[in-house]
Design a protein around this nucleic acid. Structure first.
Lengths: 335, 335
DNA sequence: AAAACAAAATGAAAGCATTTATGGACAAGG
DNA sequence: CCTTGTCCATAAATGCTTTCATTTTGTTTT
């Protein structure tokens, strides 16, 4: 069933059918109705390829994320997908993994698929070395690229980020004010947002003259997949003599590991031991006591990201970078 | 940059360029090299729309899931995506939500996008009423449809499921054998897999003459999003006089709520109170003690699903339904 | 070495299903 | 009778694949 069949059965030219299909107003009500009736009767849907060929767009946005089973990223994808669809766009999702090579491959794939824009979900797409970010610049030369929780000053790249620095800074100050002195920072990555969080922690600690040498604990493979391993890591450090009574974690899963560690050590939470998480994910309410965590308003970020993207696609001038502030959700792991 | 430009610069016809592009062997090494050189030099990539128009396929599979932020579904999507890409297929993901209407809309969208096949991730796509499953039959009339953890006897629909019945049956028997008598079943849905799990529990309980009237507890909105609400639900039931010392949960999040409930009631786990989860998700290792949970070999299921799909697409005869058995992962919440 | 034939390599052109620019027919208004 | 505007059809354009015909190359045969 093609547009020719419809035009024949409706007794009009294919151009008229096309106009009806695309909502052109240069069609009389009468013929429009006749055409629509035929279309409905035969359940005709236009061929997406041919349409794409003619229009050179398929109203599709490419979404890239390193790992869609990551809690935070999955949630972001959910919001983004939903909002795109509400605006008549579809999406193609690529789970890229964490390697530059696979990311580049996915990027090319999306470009090949003729997406109208690309959204990079998560800060792990940005590399230290500028040359490693070339794949983003290349893509941006073709279509607008949106960054969620990352930042890159390149033409046609737009960023929407949460103010991780301030959130961490204030949360750290709060913990210090409750009397905890030996606070360590527990993190897994030094991506864009990771660095900002770390800086917030450091600034607060330095201000209060509490920064010693040993309070940066990194566990590279920190994700919810291996909370037990992270817990063991802390226990080992403890056995080696590293003691602390407060943990600022870069992610809820790290925070959860800290809670489990504290339990194993026999600390009472929050009397003897404080923990702050990040992302306010479902993990926050999974442990006992529930995690105090920072909520970075993911839905707001996503909403803004889509709005910006749609603006860019419509040819409007849009802000290159937007920052939203987060919120500390006080629960049971801090005083 | 089109195929015409390349053909001109390489001094051959567009047919030859096309043949080089598609790996046809009817082209001499010499011209092949010359054409490839030009292609590389100008970084030419064929237009996907035009190609699709000609071939009437884009090597793309549509994936539908109700909610990609669901832990289990997200993981499934991850596996599926990865395995598809390894086989040269791309995917379009649609998060459909739980309404029949939005599911139907997503289905139509994928068909419109000319996907080569559709994968429905999760058992919530199947409805009780046959007429509600018409949207699946309609889709299957166009492209093969794969069901993960669901079952439907319709032409061109293929199922890969885990043997939830047996897993639950055996896990329930095990719990009974440890001496727990008053075991309730805590669940949230009566989808295909939900029903199978329930049946497993009931069969075991009936066999041991332990089935009373009050041991089916349903909490409709049970997902990791509202573990606190589920916990409260159990507490309320307790206050109304419903007492029990064992919980078989249809999902890890429900199990986690049960653990939190037991804690609040002052039960010791597993001495006074036993809990069994399902899916062996990350939640299993997030609580204290860690959850005993049933692992249904998700990666194996996904691998098999893709293999079957690729087989169908290649025109081979493939099994309509495949069943894999699960495994009980013993941890701290059962004796 | 030429002729005959088969096989391989290539090109021309016909799809594929749309969109859209161009222009024609017709009716209404002056 | 001319102009204007509405509605619609014709035809070109989009970038590729693929069939079919043709040319080139290679292999036998004489």
């Amino acid at each position: 069933m093609t547009i020719y069949d419809i035009s024949e059965k409706a007794g009009v030219s294919i151009a008229t059918v096309s106009r009806v299909l695309n909502g052109s107003n240069n069609v009389s009500e009468k013929t429009k109705k006749r055409v629509l009736d035929v279309i409905n009767q035969y359940e005709y849907t236009p061929n997406a390829f041919a349409r794409g060929l003619g229009l050179n767009t398929m109203k599709t946005i490419g979404i890239m994320c390193a790992d869609s089973s990551d809690l935070y990223l999955a949630k972001a994808i959910y919001y983004i997908e939903q909002k795109l669809r509400a605006n008549g766009y579809d999406s193609i999702l690529c789970c890229t993994g964490y390697e530059l090579e696979t990311k580049t491959a996915s990027m090319n794939l999306l470009i090949t698929k003729k997406v109208d824009g690309i959204i990079l979900v998560g800060s792990n797409f940005i590399y230290e070395k500028d040359s490693d970010n070339k794949y983003i610049a290349d893509a941006a030369a073709q279509v607008p690229v949106m960054l969620l929780n990352a930042d890159l000053d390149i033409p046609n790249v737009y960023s929407v980020v949460s103010d991780d620095f301030t959130s961490m800074y204030e949360a750290t100050l709060q913990m210090i004010q409750t009397g905890v002195k030996d606070i360590v920072y527990f993190y897994n990555s030094t991506s864009y947002s990771g660095k900002r969080k770390l800086a917030g922690y450091r600034t607060a600690m330095e201000e209060k003259k509490l920064l010693s040498g040993a309070n940066l604990l990194q566990f590279y493979h920190g994700s919810h997949e291996n909370i037990p391993a992270m817990t063991q890591h802390l226990v080992k450090l403890h056995e080696k003599g590293l003691k602390f009574h407060g943990v600022i974690a870069a992610d809820d899963s790290l925070a959860l590991a800290a809670v489990k560690y504290a339990r194993e050590m026999g600390y009472r939470i929050p009397e003897d031991f404080s923990v702050l998480g990040y992302n306010n994910s479902l993990l926050s309410v999974c442990c006992e006591p529930e995690l105090t965590s920072i909520d970075n308003k993911l839905e707001t970020l996503c909403q803004h990201l889509i709005t910006t993207l749609l603006g860019v696609l419509a040819g409007n001038e849009m802000p290159k970078k937007t920052i939203f502030s987060g919120e500390i959700i006080k629960r049971g792991t801090t005083r």
